[in-house]
Write a protein that binds this DNA or RNA. Structure first.
Lengths: 118, 118
DNA sequence: ATCGTAGTACGAGGTCTATCGTACGAGGCG
DNA sequence: CGCCTCGTACGATAGACCTCGTACTACGAT
């Protein structure tokens, strides 16, 4: 009641020890999902799914967010009808120190090189 | 003639500027290929395909090495009937500084955590 | 020249993936 | 309540991917 948290029910997330590097890399190997993660990292805040303006349908968007969540890259929480998404920075840094930053830096670098102005 | 290099013909490799982060991540998201890359990094030398004792057939092995080469992760050179494989450390470090080391460290960490003794 | 070894090519099978469309559920707001 | 928005679920489709087996090439050694 005095809880500021979620209204809806919970979503299944992998425990840190269940997160597999291969799954994380696979999740990030899709351009759409890498783009989502970059935006999430840039804003440094929880963002709703609808905040993203992806060139795919809603169904496909749901699919990509689910892949990211099930691989352990993001955390999703219902907040009313919206679903807030946040990077699992702490968990990933604990498991693979420095990896996330390197990946994000690599993505930034490539985006700059290719002229994909953020 | 005074060339110490290859006997056979050349294999197509992507130029550094053609290497895409997504392709690299996809290449490394397969357990068999990640294993190959880890061995390659550990030995710090060029290894022949047959040096690897993978639990798949020769055809499949060829396939995985091709994926790694085409994504820009390894360099392959014919040397007689053997094909020598080497990590493209310099090119990758130039494109994505620190990424390869982070990835290898992450893989090592996970292998240790899961008891996959090297 | 003959054989053996290293690796390729090609095709097939089965699985997984990305995408879509439509129909549905849950929550906020008039 | 009725409606709109956010997101899900399910089914379908087309393409990619991993795996294999068999037939083949290239090189080196006997």
């Amino acid at each position: 009641m005095t809880d500021t948290a979620t209204t809806g029910r919970a979503l299944p997330h992998p425990e840190p020890e269940e997160i597999r590097l291969e799954s994380v890399l696979h999740a990030l190997s899709d351009p759409m999902r890498l783009r989502i993660v970059r935006e999430l990292a840039a804003d440094e805040a929880e963002l709703s799914c609808s905040h993203f303006d992806l060139p795919v349908t809603k169904s496909t968007t749901t699919h990509h967010f689910r892949v990211l969540r099930q691989s352990g890259v993001i955390r999703q929480v219902y907040q009313g009808t919206a679903k807030m998404n946040g990077l699992r920075r702490d968990d990933l840094d604990g498991l693979f120190p420095g990896l996330l930053d390197s990946l994000l830096a690599a993505a930034d670098r490539q985006a700059g090189r290719l002229g994909d102005r953020s």
